[in-house]
Design a protein around this nucleic acid. Sequence first.
DNA 1: CTGAAAGCGCTAACAG
DNA 2: CTGTTAGCGCTTTCAG
Lengths: 341, 341
Amino acid sequence: MAHRATLTQVAQRAGVSIASASRALNGLVASPATVDKVRRAADDLGYVPDASARALKMGATGQITFAVDDIGNPVYVEMMTGVQEVVAASGFRLQVTATGGTRDVADVLDLLRSMRRGYADGLVLSPLRVTAELVAEIAATPIPVVVIGRLPDGAGVDTVMTDSARGVALAVEHLHAQGRRRIAFLNGPGDTTPGAARRRGFDDAVAHLDVVASTHEAADFTMAAGREAAHRILTAAGRPVDAIVAANDLLAIGALHAAHDLGLDVPGRLAVTGVDDTSLAEIVHPPLTSVSLDSRRRGQLAAELLTRRIEDPTRAPQVLSVPPLLHVRGSSAPTPQAGNR
Amino acid sequence: MAHRATLTQVAQRAGVSIASASRALNGLVASPATVDKVRRAADDLGYVPDASARALKMGATGQITFAVDDIGNPVYVEMMTGVQEVVAASGFRLQVTATGGTRDVADVLDLLRSMRRGYADGLVLSPLRVTAELVAEIAATPIPVVVIGRLPDGAGVDTVMTDSARGVALAVEHLHAQGRRRIAFLNGPGDTTPGAARRRGFDDAVAHLDVVASTHEAADFTMAAGREAAHRILTAAGRPVDAIVAANDLLAIGALHAAHDLGLDVPGRLAVTGVDDTSLAEIVHPPLTSVSLDSRRRGQLAAELLTRRIEDPTRAPQVLSVPPLLHVRGSSAPTPQAGNR
DNA sequence: CTGAAAGCGCTAACAG
DNA sequence: CTGTTAGCGCTTTCAG
């Protein structure tokens, strides 16, 4: 810990007015001699401009906030990477806030309200649940907000979405092509935005396919919840399923564990697919087939929308979309030695 | 996006002076009637105090920064959880900054310099590499800094450490007790603080044990680097190793993959252990034996040191330590069917 | 090119 | 209990 020098002290030491010192340091009009004196004084004193004072004066903080629900999910880490790349290039600092207490929607609302205090010049938000209250709160936020996810039509907010319904459909069609005919959908909470979209994708996909389909909900989008729900799916009475389509990688990995617990060979007896294509897909065994929603790209796009809107607050809100892409890996191989075990 | 009301406007609407408005809102002396009027006016206007103005006036931001090198590593996510718990309870907001560009030390130095601008009231830092420059920069930082890691003696900085050398020794002793006698140490970069400490732990442990030991360095503390280095270890000429002690979980999982690539049964032919006991340890198969360094606890302790120092900047610097704890899982089971395959 | 002065929004003496 | 006033550190007119 050390002390902080103020511009006044720098000016004094340089023997110029505080205004000249400011100009010299900011590269505005100033004679070379002044610039030199001031620079030297600033160096000597270890002067660094105060962020609060500057923010107060300028009405801008130079910071951008990225708010995530569950920082333990690699999806958000990837998004953050994308956001950071763009944001840093535009000269902003990125700060990350985890909203993910247990209070969920309430936490996000609190965050939005606190953003009104002017901590940052812009906000990237990826909410799990979208309520009317949330949309209203976004509208009432005095700084630009970009949402990664899906908002009601006409919300008038810059948005980056992805067609996760189509993504789930890709997984289903792939499994069908591999000969799977008894497919279970392992969803997270259906009242979340991704939960609803993915369910829709599953329903649509199985509607015009000759498969026996069922849908199940885990308590949340975590591995533990997925494992538990998958246990129920795999031990249910009747003919066993030969594929589980999970709504995200964490749930899928839970399913992989449940299969292992029950001695079911994957992919021999059961195929499993995830969504998000996180780094976890490659660390499990067998490697997980997963639908990439390109989180990093979504982060980049969101940050671009945000910086553009900060520059020009009047531009029309824009909605961008990133297409899903299926990555086939070992967990859904075409039943190599069918009926094994 | 909406507009922001100022205290002056609230005071005007309530028909009182700006000072009274401030007092009423902050719960200082004010007549009930005034409080009521001001509250109502503030609500009507959607008034929220401006963070920059308040920070400038008070000389404090109410924010705490947690700086991490690699936000993709679950260790830091857990630390963050711990920090957040304590920091929120003390009424601070937490902001996370990822320093982990490719420039490493330089990034951390930049961050420290930028902290001088007064973005936050305190900083929790977990640096991978500690240089004299870093220590100097910490000393020059005008806000309290707490380091999670290890600093040179007498650095005079609040620190939370863990005995990771002892942690590695625990792993080695465990493997020895299981009958493993040819043990390879899979380290990350040896010039990092954890790298150096863990290596020391390994060397000390094997010194008084009847084992054949070897040490290897991966390019960094990632799974990919671990896999690559483990490949080399496992395909080297001479008698094969029967255990790999990895310096963290990511490296250990890389080793697990390498073993799988080579068709080596774990734990039958090869035992593998990690360090950090992250959530990944339980998602891989076989589950990974790992030494817990209780990242969350370290985060909590660091945050406690920090809030205490913010309250009382004069207190003597303190060094806290969290003991390592071995979690035995499937990856190091006692050679169940020795000499299989 | 430079200095004096105003003021961003807020809190905290200080008088009344 | 309340209003007036002085700044926190900085940028930016506005005159010189």
